[in-house]
């Protein structure tokens, strides 16, 4: 049993090592994304009537969002691998169950992407300094929400990859999946702001898994007031992890026809 976990751990570690090779480039990306968001939403948008605290609100919402964007970009290579290269077949001959071998892929993605997206927080604090108020910050709640959100996005991307037959069919991902998820995922607003406008719209919005991650992370940073109950969000994220992992792994196993 111990050996299975060693194999599992090193399969995840492999994804982190791969990511480490492009870490500096990713770091530059993050710095540009965070700083432009801060400039626009903290210093420019208030002149159009937005509150000055909208900048910190947006920047904290970026944390789960950046993981989503990063893991989605890996869908293409996995789809290509399944349909052509079959690099994945190597891990399916290792001394580990196929389910765990496959699960290591999205968890590895989540870990690797998390290493970069977590940096949003200190970068934002440095740039915003006193404007990012952390009096209600709960480190424990933040870490739990952050880790679970990353794992959920990892399995979400994995499940997406399982649905796409061929690399040439991947073009719809951004338009049909990522864009609505992002626009309606609570990045620009809180769930209660939608619910206050229309209860039905609020309930419909709960279908979007992104809303739970932005709400949980903001609740852990800014405090519970004004956000979905933290524990409800965490439970929903765990539920989505189960759904995406079960369906994703099952579908990929079927496609690869593996033991």
């Amino acid at each position: 049993m111990k050996n299975i976990f060693i194999t599992f751990f090193y399969l995840i570690y492999k994804e982190i090592l791969l990511f480490a090779k492009v870490y500096v480039s990713k770091l530059i990306d993050i710095f540009i994304i965070v700083s432009t968001n801060i400039i626009i939403f903290t210093y420019l948008m208030p002149s159009f009537g937005l509150k000055a605290n909208y900048g910190p609100f947006i920047v904290i919402g970026l944390i789960p969002l950046l993981t989503l964007f990063d893991v989605i970009s890996r869908v293409y290579s996995l789809v290509g691998d399944i349909s052509e290269n079959k690099k994945i077949s190597f891990i399916l001959t290792l001394p580990i169950t196929s389910t765990l071998a496959l699960a290591s892929i999205p968890i590895g993605w989540a870990a690797a992407s998390g290493i970069v997206s977590i940096l949003v927080f200190p970068i934002a604090k440095i740039i915003l300094y006193k404007q990012l108020i952390l009096t209600n910050f709960s480190f424990f709640k933040f870490i739990v929400a952050f880790i679970l959100s990353n794992i959920m996005f990892g399995f979400f991307a994995f499940w997406l990859a399982s649905l796409i037959k061929d690399e040439k069919y991947t073009s719809w991902i951004w338009a049909r999946v990522v864009n609505p998820l992002f626009m309606l995922g609570g990045y620009f607003y809180t769930w209660y702001s939608v619910f206050d406008k229309s209860e039905i719209a609020g309930y419909i919005n709960l279908i979007n898994p992104l809303i739970y991650t932005t709400e949980a992370i903001r609740a852990s940073v800014f405090g519970q007031s004004g956000y979905l109950n933290y524990y409800v969000s965490i439970s929903a994220i765990i539920g989505f992890i189960l759904i995406f992992s079960i369906f994703g792994i099952r579908k990929i196993k079927k496609r690869l026809d593996c033991v």
Binding site: K2, I6, T7, Y10, L11, Y13, K14, L17, L94, P95
Partner: peptide
């Protein structure tokens, strides 16, 4: 190295 680690 990684292959070796996969096999403990």
């Amino acid at each position: 190295y990684l292959v070796g680690r996969y096999y403990s």
